[in-house]
Design a protein around this nucleic acid. Sequence first.
DNA 1: TAGTCGTGGTA
DNA 2: TTACCAAGACT
Length: 390
Amino acid sequence: MDLAGIGVKMWDEKKIKRFRRALLDWYDKEKRDLPWRRTQNPYFIWVSEIMLQQTRVDTVIPYYERFLATFPTIKDLAEAPEETLLKCWEGLGYYSRVRNMQKAAIQVMEEFGGEFPNTYDGILSLKGIGPYTAGAIASIAFGLPEPAVDGNLMRVISRLFEVNLDIGNPSNRWAFQEIAEILIDPDRPGDFNQALMDLGSDIESPVNPRPEESPVKDFSAAYLNGTMHIYPIKKPKKKPTPMKWRAFVVQDEQGRFLVEKNTQADLLSGFWHFPLIRDFSTIGESIDLFEGVLEESSNYEINQNIPLEVQFESLYRMKLTPIRLLPKSVKHIFSHQRWDIELQYASALGEVKNNSSRTLKWVTKEEMKLLPQSRVQGKMCEILVGQELL
DNA sequence: TAGTCGTGGTA
DNA sequence: TTACCAAGACT
């Protein structure tokens, strides 16, 4: 398949040059002053690009500053302990990003002699760097004429050419890549890519765009044809699956809390939290919940009739004195799951005999704060503070 | 190909 | 409250 095959008619060379000029002139006047735009250091730009994946600029800025103060060089990143790494990324989400970044840092030390690779293929070979990020780093840090095809660029281009392809489908990426390769300014590829991103994140944003303010509106087929509302084409996302949990807030005689390191699931892997047990008992109360639970019917059959306190005592090999269920539950939405967590407050009678593969420890309130904690755990702690239990 | 992987902002 | 969204990569 080629561009003509999907109904895209490319401009002639003269129009392409006018487009580059209009876009870059606007960028030179209006570009945002961002920390990673004051450096040419490929490591710094790499960090910014990873953090910016699916994450807003305002959120990233403080994390960017702190991360580079903590790990000033690729070598520092490669040698960092996991908990330091997670603590630095805590609250930013999508934590596999930082794990992959450390793997890539080790790759740079071992395969590239400590020097960040300066070719597109070299950059793309690093763990956690896909076609977008490779293009962004190649163009911004090294001046290579590689497009950086992200959501912004696809949205802008789909409006420029009325591209009738779903931008959410990776198999359609080639078309936007191909168009961008033709449009990109070979003299200023990094600025060209960033100009499209600035444009796409504000004037050409997905919600409430202001197309009449666009510096390239005269080039936009959708704008000129009055079809702005159609583009980009994008399928709606699936709703997150509802799940119920019981968290066990257990204190020993010294008042320390039992916490567990997540070593089993990929979700929030490496983070510490109060022990959590999936609650399958409310099946039938909610159609939504029922649908979410269907695929785990074996778990459901095993657990639905066993009280959660009993499950806890068995799994953690510990006797509890359940005190009470806290009146407020914690609600938390991930990209693909919606959690509702009841908090069971209890005292432990004996020491934990940890025969399982679980990683457990007793910590004071102060020690808990030093561990990597997810927002879910943070919300549970907020409830406890409200109940004057923490 | 479609699901997995977080969080906070905004309407 | 709900729904949608943000500079994606990996499996």
